[in-house]
Design a protein around this nucleic acid. Structure first.
Lengths: 180, 180
DNA sequence: CAATACGTACAGAAAAAACTGTACGTACAA
DNA sequence: TTGTACGTACAGTTTTTTCTGTACGTATTG
């Protein structure tokens, strides 16, 4: 194995590790390979570059680069005289984590909160209907309690997301590691 | 639509909302429905209960309840005289979030860190080999820099996980919401 | 001890997700 | 204006994941 192959092997290990864990960002392994490959390239790449490098169709590259963009793991960059779209990985991995966390959970909180609001309104109305047995009323009130609890939880989660978004998380857990 | 149907509709909305978002916990929608259904039941359920309630096979219930257990969303409980396994949802959603976060990310950090350690060792050895061109040496050193950076990032992530695990996150983002 | 009830391993079926090739719309170039 | 280069929508294919039914091992009951 020559030096170049050894370098490739070293890179491949990291890339595969990313590929196997990128599901935490809601992305498939191939997007992880794409990201990993781009991470080691020291220049912006076109879709054709990626296609050649990974041996996958340009269509796939287009689809997954969009996923990577939406998850804020890569940026589109411009170079004068180049017509093709160019992409490069973001270099601040701390911020990548924060953005991913924010994007994914904010969306979930928003959906859940809307569902809770609707159901809570329905239950409160139902509680005052006049064809309700005592037994059913008890169930309705239990459900309302449950929804109030999870609404409180989602409020906490929303504030947690705020703490990431406005960088307060770095007060609790500073970026700089202790010097040994 | 009678009162009972309205109640069901209200529950269904919440359950579906959970089902559509539980991929954030690495679980399929059906596990979310299972969790949602269990959340509204006010008693521990057997696999047969769940199977009947969701109209799915007992085998599926067995598989997904294990996933829910491993993700620490449900607990197995015991009742004297009952031979079947009984499960109920955990009632502390804050802790559920913290546990999920901890379990999933700790695993990822561990895998990444191991990969980085190996590749870094290889590259450092390669750097000292004597059949290396200057050009290749520069690439190797760039790669080493990159790996040192992401190692630092994973150290931060590990400390972030610690902050969740030992509840320090609740100092930064308190559980109690402000009274309006 | 035999009989029954239970959970789950495993193989195959069904469903969902990822990937590819073609075709098309848009923008820039000549 | 026509021609060319590019990204992506879309339909079909392949791969992966999820779900089911059967069969088996274990534990409890009679």
């Amino acid at each position: 194995m020559d030096a170049y192959e050894k370098l490739e092997k070293s890179r491949k290990r990291i890339t595969e590790s990313i590929a196997q864990n990128i599901h935490l960002y809601g992305l498939p392994p191939s997007a992880g390979r794409q990201f990993g490959m781009m991470f080691f390239e020291n220049r912006p790449l076109t879709l054709d570059d990626m296609s050649a490098e990974l041996g996958m169709s340009k269509t796939s590259m287009s689809t997954s680069i969009r996923s990577l963009s939406e998850a804020k793991l890569v940026d589109r960059v411009w170079e004068r005289g180049v017509r093709k779209d160019l992409y490069e990985v973001k270099d601040d991995w701390y911020q990548i984590f924060v953005d991913m966390f924010t994007v994914k959970w904010r969306r979930a909180v928003s959906l859940h909160t809307a569902a809770i609001r609707k159901s809570l309104a329905e239950l409160k109305e139902l509680k005052n209907a006049d064809d309700i047995t005592d037994e059913l009323l008890a169930v309705i009130e239990t459900d309302i309690e449950k929804l109030l609890y999870i609404r409180e939880y989602y409020d906490w989660l929303d504030r947690l997301i705020d703490a990431f978004e406005d960088q307060k998380i770095f007060d609790l857990v500073p970026r700089l590691e202790e010097e040994a």
